[in-house]
Every structure is written in C-alpha cells, then in structure tokens.
C-alpha cells in the first residue's frame, strides 16, 4: 500500500492534487474506475439508441415505398453540414483532452469553448431543419399532411422516427453543452493538470459518443433510399 511508502504530508498533498476520494487507495484506481464506469454508461446509451435503430430498421424494410418518398424532405446539405460541424467539434474535444494532459490551461479553455461553439452551430442548423419541417407540415401528430395520401400513416411513422432519433440526439447534445460549460468553469479555476484530467477525458468520451450516433444517423436518415 502507498500509505507505508510515502510520508504522510506528501501523500495528503498528492491526494488533494488528484482529488482522490476517500474510498480509493490510489489516484490510478480512481481513474480506472471512472473510465470503466463511463464506458459502461456509454454501453447503456448504445442500447438506448439501439431500440430506436431497431424500430427504424423494421419500418424501413416494412415500408420501402413510403420511406423512399419521404427522402425529398430530408435536406442532405444541412445534414452533411451538421456532420462536418460535429466532426470538427470532436477534433477540438480531442485537442482539449490533450491540452489537459499537458497542463496547458489556456489551450484547454480555448478548445473547450471551440467545441461548445461547434455544438451550438449544430443545434442551430438542427433548429433550421426542424423549422422547415414545421413549415412543410411534416411534424407527426401535431402538424402533418402527406402526398400521396396513401402513404400518410407510413410516412408519419418514418417522420416520427426521424424526430425521435434526431431529437434524442439533440437532447444529448444539450446535455453535453451543459457538461462542457461545467468543464470550462473548472478549467478556468485551474483544477485540471497533467495529474488530474479525468473529468475532461470522461466528458470527452461522452461527446465523441454523441458524434458517433450522428455518424450513423446521417447516412440512415439523409442518404439511403433516396431517389434523385
């Protein structure tokens, strides 16, 4: 055990610096636990989105005609732009983690804020898309019309899935922005350094995961089965 090896004063200092909580023996154990916990949480997220992907796969094969006809309402340019924006935000997030690992406080804050800007741009573009759906009467259940009318119900299901999946994704983005705000405040107070950056790393994992969900949503919702 570390207790016998290190003089008490130094150990206390180290525990303070690495924000070691009382029930862990070493900072390494604490980081290991946090990493495994975060990945386990991401697995639950995979299955959470997985339920919607399953429903999507089933209805897409069940109603291919209706599915193809909905494609003209999906704006590939906006979807593609959003994909690029998210990829950029993932890069800045990865750079932020790197800055934290190197104890570069200013870089860390800079990259975190850049990530937040990209995230906000994504949500704004998403908002534009949603607004277009509202204008085109393509909000299932509330404001929905469809031509040809025999596709009405089936198209409504597919638009519902579009809103479920992108909506759930957008909620995750909003949560992510909240977490990033917390990180910026903590980084500004100088909490993170080469020996303690687990929160940056964990929230980074979350952010990348949300990016991955979009990487699958983009081709599935915007690209496939489209007539041009």
């Amino acid at each position: 055990m570390a207790e016998t090896l290190v003089p008490a004063g130094q150990e206390e200092l180290e525990a303070q610096e690495t924000h070691l909580r009382h029930h862990f023996a070493t900072p390494e154990q604490q980081t290991d636990a946090a990493t495994l916990g975060m990945w386990t949480f991401l697995i639950t997220e995979v299955l959470f989105f997985g339920g919607m992907f399953t429903a999507y796969a089933i209805y897409r094969t069940m109603y291919p005609g209706a599915f193809a006809s909905t494609s003209e309402f999906m704006d590939v340019r906006l979807g593609g732009a959003n994909t690029a924006v998210l990829i950029c935000s993932s890069l800045t997030m990865a750079l932020a983690v790197r800055a934290a690992q190197l104890s570069r406080r200013k870089d860390l804050i800079r990259f975190l804020i850049l990530t937040m800007i990209f995230g906000t741009v994504f949500l704004v573009i998403k908002g534009i898309e949603y607004h277009a759906k509202w204008v085109e009467y393509k909000v299932p259940g509330f404001r929905f019309t469809y031509e040809p009318s025999y596709y009405f119900h089936h198209a409504q299901i597919l638009f519902s899935l579009y809103f479920y999946m992108t909506g759930m994704h957008a909620i995750h983005m909003v949560v992510g922005l909240g977490l990033l705000t917390y990180l910026v405040i903590q980084a500004w107070r100088g909490i993170f350094h080469a020996r303690y950056f687990a929160p940056v790393e964990m929230i980074g994992l979350y952010w990348h995961f949300v990016d991955i969900v979009w990487i699958f949503l983009f081709p599935l919702l915007y690209l496939i089965g489209h007539k041009r």
Binding site: V46, G50, G51, T54, S90, L91, H208, F209, I212
Partner: peptide, 29 residues
Amino acid sequence: VVWIFMGVRHVTTLTRLFVVAGLVWLFIM
C-alpha cells in the same frame, strides 16, 4: 473516432471487451 479520439487503442483489454459487448448486444436485439 472510437480508436483514436476516444483512445481505445490505449485502453485495457477489459474496456475493449465492454465496448465489444455493447455492440454484440445491439446486434442480438
């Protein structure tokens, strides 16, 4: 993204196993 950005190339076998398990379960469903 998983391999480089999320750093899975550096993590333990255990974490990799967890990542794979999540995907396998998605496929089962």
